[in-house]
């Protein structure tokens, strides 16, 4: 009933201000459009950056898995003994530096290697001041770890990049 009386109101109260109302609607529409475009761009930018960083982390993880100095005697296996020397607490600082020497200085890397059963784990951090903040991208690759010449375990190399 209210709507009916409203649309049949012939007094023309709104008539002189039609153009203002139309402009207000247009401005609101423009602001909404600009907000949607900005949000879409920011989301796209964030997602593409995350994807790029993830690819980078995966590439580093694969590179570490094939790094000569931590390879065991057998093919495609990582030596737990080599990991012991460069992971925390570091017993061979020169080997630790060589481990990260292939990567650009600005790359803040942290590498966690664990066996699937969780019994063994190694943490290798590039910088002692490494602190995990909000922008960390991580990627993992599966590896086989040679715990001793007669014992092997499947595990994972997880590389975290601080951005």
């Amino acid at each position: 009933m209210t709507l009916f009386s409203f649309i049949n109101d012939d007094r023309g109260v709104l008539e002189p201000h039609n153009d203002i109302l139309a402009t207000a609607l247009m401005i609101i529409g423009f602001v909404v459009l600009a907000a949607i475009l900005a949000q879409t761009y920011l989301t796209y930018d964030d997602n593409s950056m995350v994807l790029r960083n993830y690819e980078e982390a995966t590439r580093i993880a694969e590179n570490i898995a094939s790094f000569d100095e931590i390879q065991a005697a057998g093919p495609d296996r990582i030596s737990a003994q080599a990991l012991d020397t460069i992971s925390y607490p570091i017993s061979d600082s020169e080997a630790h530096r060589r481990f990260f020497a292939r990567y650009a200085d600005g790359l803040d890397l942290s590498v966690h290697i664990t066996t699937d059963d969780g019994h063994h784990q190694w943490t290798i951090e590039r910088y002692s001041t490494h602190t995990l903040g909000n922008n960390v991208i991580a990627a993992s690759v599966p590896v086989v770890i040679e715990l001793s010449p007669a014992e092997f375990a499947s595990g994972t190399i997880r590389v975290s990049i601080q951005k």
Binding site: E56, R59, I60, A101, R102, Y103, A104, D105, G106, L107
Partner: peptide, 12 residues
Amino acid sequence: PIHSVVPMTFRM
């Protein structure tokens, strides 16, 4: 002028 700067992964 507009720029795009991409940090390297490997030592180059």
